[in-house]
Design a protein around this nucleic acid. Structure first.
Lengths: 171, 171
DNA sequence: ACTTGACCTAGAGTCGACTCTAGCTCCTAG
DNA sequence: CTAGGAGCTAGAGTCGACTCTAGGTCAAGT
């Protein structure tokens, strides 16, 4: 209770969160912090544990594909204080929905990929003729083919992209 | 069997796949086609059903975050013909693994989001005091807080990004 | 006194995957 | 014979989320 808010430098926060100092400054410029980052002697940023907690949430939201403007909006709502819980809920529900859809699509993609992995495993166990009995393959122009349902329609309109990440400096 | 390979224009393929004509030309430049796209009268691209099938696979791989260079490599392997199945399998397995990880992370993120949605639902049903008994909330600077495990470590190093998609022109 | 290291700002650069533009050629319908 | 529409190429532009650079301040250690 009498913890006098441990203060952290930008470097320490970077280390703790796995974000770069650049990213931290960038997030601040972009208004992702719910409460303004304090400044200490000679204008240096001073963070508290609560900032780290907040950043953790931001990281998770980002990791699940929430765009910065949406996180900014959420931060705004939080910083405005109580009274706008409905809007916060809406924002979160929307994102929840998107993540659900995304997981669904990835799972579908994974199905195809797993299917193809299976096909190639069968091919590579060619010494074993029983593999051919599974009937998994159906060649088309040199590529083992197997269209799992009307997949084109399934995937029109949403796409997932992964980035190389901030390296794990968490000790 | 005697289907004399239906030929499609770039516009038709765009319509069928949901990709733009720009993207189709771009994919071709990037070497994503396993077999070269044919040209018809006056240098126009002529696609076959097999190209559409191949594109469907590409779309799924892209949708699950496989980068273009990896798809190009896969296309190269396929176009080289039989004999490199092991490498194809490796490529697919790697991607499979990444997608699995991605789904895992999204699921984790979803947990937090769902948790927060729950918190706000509780708050908004304030007329009902039993909601407070769930003990879900623990406020910190105006933001209902609940750190679901050591999440920072969980998310360091990988990130998911979603793009606005090609619109669904599939009839 | 001076070097080192962490920090600061403003702004430029990067990367991946497209998307768009300019300026051209065809073919077909009126 | 001409206007429209679809296609072509080369190359420039865009977008999001950072990342990096230049040029400067400040405090501590030797």
């Amino acid at each position: 209770m009498a913890e006098v808010t441990t203060s952290l430098s930008i470097g320490q926060v970077a280390e703790r969160t796995g974000l770069s100092v650049h990213a931290l400054r960038f997030y601040e410029r972009e208004g992702l912090f719910a409460n303004p980052v304090q400044r200490g002697s000679s204008g240096r940023r001073v963070y508290g544990e609560d900032d780290v907690e907040w950043l953790t949430i931001c990281i998770i939201l980002r990791a699940s594909g929430m765009p910065l403007p949406a996180i900014r909006r959420y931060a705004e709502l939080v910083s405005e204080g109580a009274g706008n819980e409905k809007e916060r809920l809406n924002l979160l529900r929307q994102h929840q929905e998107r993540v659900n859809i995304q997981i669904g699509q990835l799972t579908q993609s994974l199905d195809l990929i797993t299917f193809k992995v299976g096909v190639y495993e069968d091919i590579l166990s060619e010494g074993d003729p029983t593999a051919c009995l599974t009937g998994r393959q159906q060649l088309s122009f040199g590529e083992p083919e197997g269209d799992v349902g009307g997949v084109v329609a399934m995937f029109a309109g949403l796409d997932v992209e992964q980035e190389v990440g901030v390296d794990s400096r968490v000790s």
